[in-house]
């Protein structure tokens, strides 16, 4: 589904991603862990098409299409969704307006009919319920006055509304209490199926108890320096990153 080949990217002239290779197939869940500043959010932003990040080398194919040529809205319509580490507030625009606009754009792109107002409203209510969000959310402004946890939940709510094929979760677990974490995870698990895929960025193993990954990657200094199964997350939680760095140094991988 997603193939990243030798991806290099700069932020303000500084190289942050230094040759990422990653293959994600439909039905898989991948986790990326790594110390602060290693480039996790950068990778997520580059995949979603944030123009503050400049790709200097490499290729990214999504369902066989080169997405680096596409603007962010086209990538979204193709099915890429980024749950932001820091969601943005949009005063004056209701969640309903925001999501209806987005959903209609996506449907139009796919050549599918728009939802009727009733279908749309029913869908909003159903998805809000899954995430334990109050129905008043529908008319509230996007993320305005939301707590940190509510904002994260709202990202997953948007994901459920837009039904993307590939989801990037950038630290969606940070700032969530244990109940919220369970709710958000169940939202993601409801969404998961054999045709879509998830890339989870996290610092904590606890999220991976709920969203079980098939692969865990360690990102360090702009490169993936180790890949393992879900037991790797436990090991990282236990021992930190130093041993992985040392191991990588030995094999001249850094």
């Amino acid at each position: 589904m997603l193939a990243i080949k030798n991806l290099h990217a700069n932020v303000e002239g500084k190289e942050i991603l230094k040759g990422i290779n990653l293959l994600i197939n439909a039905g898989e869940v991948h986790a990326i862990m790594g110390p602060n500043g290693s480039g996790k959010s950068t990778l997520a932003n580059v995949l979603a098409g944030n123009s503050s990040y400049e790709v200097t080398e490499g290729e990214v194919y999504f369902d066989g299409k080169n997405i680096l040529e596409m603007n962010p809205e086209t990538r979204a319509r193709e099915g890429i969704f980024l749950a932001f580490q820091y969601p943005i507030e949009i005063a004056g625009i209701s969640n309903a307006t925001f999501l209806k606009t987005a959903l209609n754009e996506i449907k139009r792109y796919k050549g599918e009919p728009e939802l009727t107002p009733k279908e749309f409203l029913d869908r909003m209510k159903a998805k809000a319920q899954i995430l334990g969000l109050d129905e008043t959310l529908i008319s509230r402004y996007v993320n305005v006055g939301f707590s940190g946890g509510e904002k994260k939940r709202n990202e997953i709510f948007q994901m459920l509304m837009l039904e993307p094929k590939f989801v990037l979760l950038d630290e969606t677990d940070s700032g969530l209490d244990i109940d919220a974490l369970k709710i958000v995870s169940s939202g993601v698990n409801i969404y998961r199926n054999k045709d879509n895929a998830v890339l989870v960025v996290t610092h904590y193993q606890r999220l991976l108890n709920y969203i079980q990954p098939d692969f865990v990657h360690v990102l360090f200094n702009g490169k993936i320096i180790k890949t393992g199964g879900k037991e790797l997350a436990l090991e990282l939680e236990d021992k930190g990153y130093d041993w992985v760095k040392d191991e990588a140094l030995e094999t001249q991988n850094v």
């Binding site: 123009s51 603007n71 809205e73 949009i90 004056g92 754009e105 837009l162």
Partner: peptide, 28 residues
């Protein structure tokens, strides 16, 4: 705000409409 614009576009909303949303948000 370009980051806010990116957030909106990353949901499939075209750039012009994203700008309009931000104009409305600003005036709000």
């Amino acid at each position: 705000d370009e980051e806010a614009e990116f957030y909106i576009r990353s949901r499939g909303v075209p750039q012009e409409l994203a700008k309009s949303m931000l104009i409305r948000a600003f005036a709000n």
